[in-house]
Simulated assay, not measured.
Amino acid sequence: MPFTQVISSSGMVTLMTLLALRPPRPRRTTPFTLSFFLTFLINEQPFLALYLLAAGVIPPLSAGETGRLSWWLGAGVAAGTAVGLLALAVRTRTARPRLTTALRQALGPAAVTRRRRRGLWPTVRLLVLPLISYRFDVRRVANLRYGEAGRGHLLDVYVPRAGTANAPVLVYLHGGGFRMGSKMIGARPLLYRLAGQGWVCVSANYRLSGRLRYADRLADTRQVIRWVHDNGPAYGADLSAVFVAGGSAGAHLAATAALTASAVPRPPDSREAGLPVAGAIGFYGYYGQADAGADSTPLAHLHADAPPFLVVHGTLDTLVLVEDARHFASELGQVSAQPVVYAELPGTQHNFDFFPSLRFNAVIEAVEDFAAWVRTTGAVPPSHRNAAPSQREIDPGTCP
Protein backbone atom coordinates (compact mmCIF):
# COMPACT_ATOMS: atom_id res chain seq x y z
CA MET A 1 0.00 0.00 0.00
CA PRO A 2 1.41 3.44 -0.92
CA PHE A 3 0.33 4.92 2.43
CA THR A 4 2.22 2.31 4.45
CA GLN A 5 5.25 2.59 2.19
CA VAL A 6 5.26 6.38 2.39
CA ILE A 7 5.06 6.30 6.20
CA SER A 8 7.82 3.73 6.47
CA SER A 9 10.15 5.64 4.13
CA SER A 10 9.42 9.21 5.20
CA GLY A 11 7.97 8.89 8.70
CA MET A 12 11.17 10.12 10.38
CA VAL A 13 11.34 13.19 8.12
CA THR A 14 7.69 13.93 8.91
CA LEU A 15 8.30 13.60 12.66
CA MET A 16 11.41 15.77 12.51
CA THR A 17 9.54 18.41 10.54
CA LEU A 18 6.72 18.57 13.08
CA LEU A 19 9.18 18.82 15.96
CA ALA A 20 11.23 21.48 14.18
CA LEU A 21 8.17 23.63 13.63
CA ARG A 22 7.27 23.60 17.32
CA PRO A 23 9.65 21.64 19.57
CA PRO A 24 8.67 21.03 23.19
CA ARG A 25 10.63 23.37 25.47
CA PRO A 26 12.24 22.05 28.66
CA ARG A 27 11.53 23.81 31.92
CA ARG A 28 15.15 24.80 32.34
CA THR A 29 18.42 24.85 30.44
CA THR A 30 19.66 21.29 29.93
CA PRO A 31 22.62 19.60 28.20
CA PHE A 32 20.47 17.35 25.99
CA THR A 33 16.93 16.96 24.67
CA LEU A 34 15.69 14.48 22.10
CA SER A 35 13.87 17.23 20.21
CA PHE A 36 17.14 19.10 19.73
CA PHE A 37 18.89 15.98 18.44
CA LEU A 38 16.10 15.36 15.93
CA THR A 39 15.60 18.91 14.69
CA PHE A 40 18.72 21.09 14.74
CA LEU A 41 19.90 19.92 11.30
CA ILE A 42 16.53 19.98 9.58
CA ASN A 43 15.79 23.43 11.04
CA GLU A 44 18.81 24.88 9.24
CA GLN A 45 18.74 22.58 6.20
CA PRO A 46 15.06 22.07 5.24
CA PHE A 47 16.02 21.66 1.57
CA LEU A 48 18.22 18.70 2.41
CA ALA A 49 15.29 17.10 4.22
CA LEU A 50 13.09 17.86 1.21
CA TYR A 51 15.49 15.88 -0.99
CA LEU A 52 15.32 12.95 1.43
CA LEU A 53 11.54 13.16 1.49
CA ALA A 54 11.32 13.14 -2.29
CA ALA A 55 13.68 10.17 -2.54
CA GLY A 56 11.55 8.22 -0.08
CA VAL A 57 8.02 8.96 -1.33
CA ILE A 58 8.28 9.31 -5.11
CA PRO A 59 9.00 5.60 -5.81
CA PRO A 60 6.01 4.17 -3.86
CA LEU A 61 3.64 6.87 -5.12
CA SER A 62 4.79 6.33 -8.70
CA ALA A 63 4.26 2.59 -8.38
CA GLY A 64 0.89 2.90 -6.65
CA GLU A 65 -2.47 3.11 -8.35
CA THR A 66 -3.63 6.71 -8.37
CA GLY A 67 -7.16 7.32 -7.17
CA ARG A 68 -7.10 4.72 -4.40
CA LEU A 69 -7.59 5.92 -0.83
CA SER A 70 -4.18 4.62 0.25
CA TRP A 71 -2.51 6.57 -2.55
CA TRP A 72 -4.24 9.79 -1.56
CA LEU A 73 -3.35 9.28 2.09
CA GLY A 74 0.32 8.72 1.21
CA ALA A 75 0.32 11.73 -1.11
CA GLY A 76 -1.30 13.83 1.61
CA VAL A 77 1.34 12.93 4.18
CA ALA A 78 4.13 13.69 1.70
CA ALA A 79 2.57 16.99 0.65
CA GLY A 80 1.97 18.06 4.24
CA THR A 81 5.57 17.30 5.16
CA ALA A 82 6.83 19.22 2.12
CA VAL A 83 4.73 22.24 3.11
CA GLY A 84 6.18 22.05 6.62
CA LEU A 85 9.71 21.99 5.24
CA LEU A 86 8.99 24.99 3.03
CA ALA A 87 7.61 26.79 6.11
CA LEU A 88 10.92 26.11 7.87
CA ALA A 89 12.77 27.58 4.89
CA VAL A 90 10.60 30.70 4.90
CA ARG A 91 11.09 31.06 8.65
CA THR A 92 14.85 31.34 8.22
CA ARG A 93 14.30 34.63 6.41
CA THR A 94 13.03 36.28 9.61
CA ALA A 95 16.58 36.38 10.99
CA ARG A 96 17.82 39.28 8.87
CA PRO A 97 15.20 41.88 9.95
CA ARG A 98 15.65 40.92 13.62
CA LEU A 99 19.41 41.30 13.37
CA THR A 100 19.11 44.58 11.47
CA THR A 101 16.79 46.00 14.12
CA ALA A 102 19.06 44.91 16.97
CA LEU A 103 22.17 46.40 15.33
CA ARG A 104 20.50 49.71 14.59
CA GLN A 105 18.99 50.04 18.05
CA ALA A 106 22.32 49.38 19.78
CA LEU A 107 24.81 50.96 17.38
CA GLY A 108 22.84 53.53 15.43
CA PRO A 109 21.06 53.69 12.07
CA ALA A 110 24.31 53.56 10.07
CA ALA A 111 25.47 50.31 11.66
CA VAL A 112 24.03 48.09 8.92
CA THR A 113 25.91 48.45 5.65
CA ARG A 114 24.42 48.18 2.20
CA ARG A 115 26.06 45.24 0.46
CA ARG A 116 26.40 44.48 -3.18
CA ARG A 117 23.84 42.02 -4.43
CA ARG A 118 25.38 38.59 -4.42
CA GLY A 119 23.02 37.31 -7.08
CA LEU A 120 21.50 33.85 -6.88
CA TRP A 121 24.74 31.99 -6.16
CA PRO A 122 24.40 31.83 -2.31
CA THR A 123 20.91 30.33 -2.64
CA VAL A 124 21.96 27.99 -5.44
CA ARG A 125 24.92 26.84 -3.36
CA LEU A 126 22.63 26.03 -0.44
CA LEU A 127 20.41 24.00 -2.77
CA VAL A 128 23.23 22.13 -4.49
CA LEU A 129 25.88 21.90 -1.74
CA PRO A 130 23.87 22.27 1.46
CA LEU A 131 26.55 21.03 3.88
CA ILE A 132 29.71 22.44 2.27
CA SER A 133 31.46 25.48 3.79
CA TYR A 134 34.82 25.08 2.03
CA ARG A 135 36.11 27.90 -0.18
CA PHE A 136 38.95 27.59 -2.69
CA ASP A 137 40.23 31.08 -1.88
CA VAL A 138 40.82 30.22 1.80
CA ARG A 139 43.74 28.26 3.24
CA ARG A 140 43.42 26.34 6.52
CA VAL A 141 46.66 25.97 8.46
CA ALA A 142 45.79 22.98 10.63
CA ASN A 143 46.82 21.71 14.06
CA LEU A 144 49.11 24.45 15.25
CA ARG A 145 50.14 23.94 18.88
CA TYR A 146 49.54 26.68 21.43
CA GLY A 147 50.22 24.63 24.59
CA GLU A 148 51.42 21.29 25.89
CA ALA A 149 48.11 19.45 26.40
CA GLY A 150 48.09 17.33 23.24
CA ARG A 151 44.95 17.65 21.11
CA GLY A 152 43.43 19.94 23.71
CA HIS A 153 45.96 22.62 22.78
CA LEU A 154 45.67 22.66 18.99
CA LEU A 155 44.22 25.38 16.80
CA ASP A 156 43.56 26.00 13.10
CA VAL A 157 44.14 29.29 11.28
CA TYR A 158 42.01 30.28 8.27
CA VAL A 159 43.52 32.93 5.99
CA PRO A 160 43.03 34.12 2.40
CA ARG A 161 45.25 32.24 -0.03
CA ALA A 162 46.24 35.57 -1.57
CA GLY A 163 47.40 36.83 1.82
CA THR A 164 46.11 39.73 3.89
CA ALA A 165 47.32 42.69 5.92
CA ASN A 166 45.91 44.76 8.78
CA ALA A 167 43.19 42.12 9.04
CA PRO A 168 40.68 41.76 11.87
CA VAL A 169 40.91 38.50 13.80
CA LEU A 170 38.16 36.14 14.92
CA VAL A 171 38.96 33.57 17.61
CA TYR A 172 36.21 30.93 17.75
CA LEU A 173 35.61 28.46 20.61
CA HIS A 174 33.40 25.43 20.00
CA GLY A 175 30.53 24.29 22.20
CA GLY A 176 29.87 20.93 23.81
CA GLY A 177 28.99 21.55 27.44
CA PHE A 178 32.69 21.77 28.43
CA ARG A 179 32.87 17.98 27.96
CA MET A 180 32.91 17.36 24.20
CA GLY A 181 33.42 19.10 20.89
CA SER A 182 36.21 20.02 18.52
CA LYS A 183 37.65 22.94 16.58
CA MET A 184 36.34 21.19 13.45
CA ILE A 185 32.73 21.52 14.62
CA GLY A 186 30.85 24.80 14.70
CA ALA A 187 30.98 28.09 12.77
CA ARG A 188 32.86 26.72 9.76
CA PRO A 189 30.65 28.78 7.38
CA LEU A 190 31.61 31.85 9.42
CA LEU A 191 35.32 31.03 9.47
CA TYR A 192 35.51 30.42 5.73
CA ARG A 193 33.33 33.42 4.85
CA LEU A 194 35.31 35.88 6.98
CA ALA A 195 38.66 34.49 5.83
CA GLY A 196 37.45 34.88 2.26
CA GLN A 197 36.71 38.55 3.09
CA GLY A 198 40.28 39.09 4.30
CA TRP A 199 40.05 38.16 7.99
CA VAL A 200 42.41 35.98 9.98
CA CYS A 201 40.26 33.35 11.73
CA VAL A 202 41.32 30.96 14.48
CA SER A 203 39.34 27.94 15.68
CA ALA A 204 40.77 26.36 18.82
CA ASN A 205 40.43 23.25 20.91
CA TYR A 206 40.56 23.50 24.69
CA ARG A 207 40.87 20.84 27.36
CA LEU A 208 37.68 18.84 27.95
CA SER A 209 38.53 16.38 30.72
CA GLY A 210 35.90 16.15 33.45
CA ARG A 211 38.64 16.44 36.06
CA LEU A 212 39.40 20.01 35.03
CA ARG A 213 37.92 23.11 36.57
CA TYR A 214 36.37 25.96 34.60
CA ALA A 215 39.44 28.04 35.44
CA ASP A 216 41.58 25.59 33.45
CA ARG A 217 39.48 25.99 30.32
CA LEU A 218 39.42 29.75 30.76
CA ALA A 219 43.22 29.67 31.01
CA ASP A 220 43.27 27.77 27.68
CA THR A 221 41.11 30.48 26.11
CA ARG A 222 43.46 33.20 27.30
CA GLN A 223 46.40 31.19 26.01
CA VAL A 224 44.80 31.06 22.55
CA ILE A 225 44.37 34.84 22.58
CA ARG A 226 47.99 35.22 23.69
CA TRP A 227 49.05 32.92 20.81
CA VAL A 228 47.20 35.22 18.41
CA HIS A 229 49.01 38.26 19.82
CA ASP A 230 52.37 36.48 19.51
CA ASN A 231 51.85 34.87 16.09
CA GLY A 232 49.02 36.77 14.41
CA PRO A 233 51.19 39.41 12.73
CA ALA A 234 52.87 36.67 10.67
CA TYR A 235 49.45 36.00 9.10
CA GLY A 236 48.61 39.68 8.58
CA ALA A 237 46.55 40.20 11.74
CA ASP A 238 45.62 43.57 13.20
CA LEU A 239 46.09 42.98 16.94
CA SER A 240 43.90 45.97 17.81
CA ALA A 241 40.93 44.14 16.23
CA VAL A 242 40.84 40.73 17.90
CA PHE A 243 37.29 39.47 18.39
CA VAL A 244 36.56 36.43 20.53
CA ALA A 245 33.49 34.34 19.72
CA GLY A 246 31.94 31.01 20.57
CA GLY A 247 28.87 28.84 20.55
CA SER A 248 27.14 27.45 23.65
CA ALA A 249 29.92 26.62 26.16
CA GLY A 250 32.34 28.37 23.81
CA ALA A 251 30.26 31.55 24.11
CA HIS A 252 30.57 31.21 27.89
CA LEU A 253 34.37 31.06 27.64
CA ALA A 254 34.49 33.88 25.08
CA ALA A 255 32.33 36.13 27.24
CA THR A 256 34.32 35.49 30.42
CA ALA A 257 37.64 35.95 28.62
CA ALA A 258 36.43 39.27 27.19
CA LEU A 259 35.07 40.47 30.53
CA THR A 260 38.22 39.57 32.46
CA ALA A 261 40.74 40.84 29.91
CA SER A 262 43.31 43.39 30.99
CA ALA A 263 45.08 46.04 28.99
CA VAL A 264 48.25 45.20 30.92
CA PRO A 265 50.10 42.11 29.55
CA ARG A 266 50.44 39.31 32.08
CA PRO A 267 52.83 36.34 32.25
CA PRO A 268 51.79 33.40 30.03
CA ASP A 269 50.85 31.25 33.05
CA SER A 270 48.77 33.95 34.72
CA ARG A 271 45.10 33.15 35.32
CA GLU A 272 44.25 36.57 36.68
CA ALA A 273 43.58 38.29 33.39
CA GLY A 274 44.14 37.94 29.70
CA LEU A 275 45.05 40.20 26.82
CA PRO A 276 42.36 42.64 25.67
CA VAL A 277 39.91 41.95 22.88
CA ALA A 278 38.03 44.41 20.70
CA GLY A 279 34.66 42.69 21.04
CA ALA A 280 32.87 39.49 22.00
CA ILE A 281 30.33 37.45 20.04
CA GLY A 282 28.11 34.74 21.49
CA PHE A 283 25.93 32.28 19.57
CA TYR A 284 23.29 30.26 21.49
CA GLY A 285 25.44 30.80 24.57
CA TYR A 286 25.22 29.31 28.02
CA TYR A 287 26.09 32.00 30.57
CA GLY A 288 25.33 30.33 33.90
CA GLN A 289 27.70 28.69 36.36
CA ALA A 290 30.08 26.19 34.80
CA ASP A 291 31.13 24.55 38.07
CA ALA A 292 30.85 25.10 41.82
CA GLY A 293 33.02 28.20 41.71
CA ALA A 294 31.04 31.38 42.25
CA ASP A 295 33.07 33.16 39.57
CA SER A 296 32.57 30.45 36.91
CA THR A 297 29.95 32.50 35.09
CA PRO A 298 30.29 35.65 32.96
CA LEU A 299 27.62 37.24 35.17
CA ALA A 300 30.17 37.39 37.99
CA HIS A 301 32.49 39.61 35.94
CA LEU A 302 30.25 42.36 34.56
CA HIS A 303 31.74 45.84 34.64
CA ALA A 304 31.49 49.21 32.91
CA ASP A 305 34.65 48.75 30.85
CA ALA A 306 33.48 45.57 29.12
CA PRO A 307 34.07 45.50 25.36
CA PRO A 308 31.13 45.64 22.92
CA PHE A 309 29.11 42.43 22.76
CA LEU A 310 27.00 40.78 20.07
CA VAL A 311 24.71 38.12 21.54
CA VAL A 312 22.53 36.02 19.20
CA HIS A 313 20.10 33.39 20.45
CA GLY A 314 17.22 31.35 19.06
CA THR A 315 13.70 31.57 20.43
CA LEU A 316 13.24 27.79 20.05
CA ASP A 317 16.56 26.75 21.60
CA THR A 318 15.76 23.57 23.53
CA LEU A 319 19.15 23.29 25.26
CA VAL A 320 19.86 26.82 26.50
CA LEU A 321 16.60 28.66 27.07
CA VAL A 322 16.33 32.05 25.43
CA GLU A 323 15.34 33.58 28.77
CA ASP A 324 18.80 32.80 30.14
CA ALA A 325 20.57 34.56 27.26
CA ARG A 326 18.16 37.49 27.52
CA HIS A 327 18.97 37.81 31.23
CA PHE A 328 22.72 37.88 30.56
CA ALA A 329 22.42 40.50 27.82
CA SER A 330 20.13 42.65 29.96
CA GLU A 331 22.42 42.50 33.01
CA LEU A 332 25.48 43.31 30.90
CA GLY A 333 23.65 46.14 29.12
CA GLN A 334 22.79 47.79 32.44
CA VAL A 335 26.44 47.85 33.53
CA SER A 336 28.58 48.24 30.42
CA ALA A 337 29.42 51.61 28.92
CA GLN A 338 29.80 49.89 25.56
CA PRO A 339 26.80 48.66 23.55
CA VAL A 340 25.33 45.19 23.85
CA VAL A 341 23.69 44.06 20.62
CA TYR A 342 21.16 41.37 21.44
CA ALA A 343 19.04 39.57 18.85
CA GLU A 344 16.54 36.76 19.28
CA LEU A 345 16.00 34.80 16.09
CA PRO A 346 12.50 33.38 15.60
CA GLY A 347 12.23 29.63 15.10
CA THR A 348 15.94 29.06 15.73
CA GLN A 349 17.45 26.07 17.52
CA HIS A 350 20.78 25.48 19.23
CA ASN A 351 23.86 24.95 17.00
CA PHE A 352 22.56 27.20 14.25
CA ASP A 353 26.14 27.92 13.13
CA PHE A 354 27.04 24.33 12.24
CA PHE A 355 25.99 24.45 8.58
CA PRO A 356 25.47 27.03 5.83
CA SER A 357 21.91 28.34 5.80
CA LEU A 358 19.93 31.42 4.86
CA ARG A 359 19.63 32.17 8.57
CA PHE A 360 23.31 31.87 9.32
CA ASN A 361 24.19 33.95 6.25
CA ALA A 362 22.25 36.78 7.93
CA VAL A 363 24.09 36.16 11.21
CA ILE A 364 27.46 36.32 9.44
CA GLU A 365 26.52 39.65 7.89
CA ALA A 366 25.58 40.90 11.36
CA VAL A 367 29.01 39.85 12.65
CA GLU A 368 30.62 41.79 9.79
CA ASP A 369 28.55 44.89 10.58
CA PHE A 370 29.26 44.63 14.32
CA ALA A 371 33.00 44.26 13.75
CA ALA A 372 33.06 47.12 11.22
CA TRP A 373 31.35 49.41 13.74
CA VAL A 374 33.82 48.46 16.47
CA ARG A 375 36.82 49.02 14.19
CA THR A 376 35.66 52.35 12.79
CA THR A 377 33.97 53.81 15.88
CA GLY A 378 35.47 52.10 18.90
CA ALA A 379 33.32 54.15 21.25
CA VAL A 380 29.87 54.28 22.74
CA PRO A 381 27.28 55.72 20.33
CA PRO A 382 26.15 59.25 21.24
CA SER A 383 22.73 57.97 22.31
CA HIS A 384 24.41 55.77 24.94
CA ARG A 385 26.72 58.36 26.47
CA ASN A 386 25.74 59.49 29.96
CA ALA A 387 22.66 57.32 29.72
CA ALA A 388 21.16 55.70 32.76
CA PRO A 389 21.43 51.90 32.82
CA SER A 390 17.76 51.51 32.06
CA GLN A 391 18.23 53.40 28.80
CA ARG A 392 20.75 50.82 27.62
CA GLU A 393 18.54 47.81 28.32
CA ILE A 394 17.39 45.63 25.52
CA ASP A 395 14.36 46.97 23.75
CA PRO A 396 11.62 44.39 24.38
CA GLY A 397 10.35 45.16 20.92
CA THR A 398 13.19 43.09 19.51
CA CYS A 399 12.00 40.04 21.38
CA PRO A 400 9.20 37.80 20.08
Rank of each mutant, 00 (worst) to 15 (best):
L190D: 01
N386E: 03
R271M: 10
P97T: 08
R222L: 05
Y158E: 02
E323M: 14
Q334F: 01
L103S: 02
V320P: 00
L18M: 13
G163C: 11
D317P: 05
V320C: 03
P276G: 00
T376Y: 05
S336K: 06
A273M: 07
N143A: 13
A215N: 09
T94H: 15
S35T: 14
R385T: 08
G293L: 11
S133F: 11
D137T: 11
T318F: 01
V128Y: 04
L53W: 01
D230S: 05
I42Y: 02
G397S: 08
D305E: 14
G285F: 00
G236M: 06
V228T: 12
R28T: 09
G67T: 08
W227D: 02
T4K: 09
L18P: 02
V320S: 03
A371W: 00
P233N: 08
A245I: 10
L310T: 00
V77W: 03
A251P: 01
L48N: 07
P130K: 08
W72G: 01
S383M: 15
P346M: 08
V277M: 01
P356C: 10
L129P: 00
W227L: 13
V159Q: 03
S182L: 07
A102I: 06
L191E: 03
N43D: 09
T376L: 07
H174C: 01
T100R: 10
P24R: 13
R385M: 07
S62M: 11
S10P: 12
V312P: 00
A362Q: 04
L120W: 14
R28H: 15
G378H: 11
V13M: 15
F3T: 04
N43L: 10
D295E: 15
T81C: 10
S209Y: 09
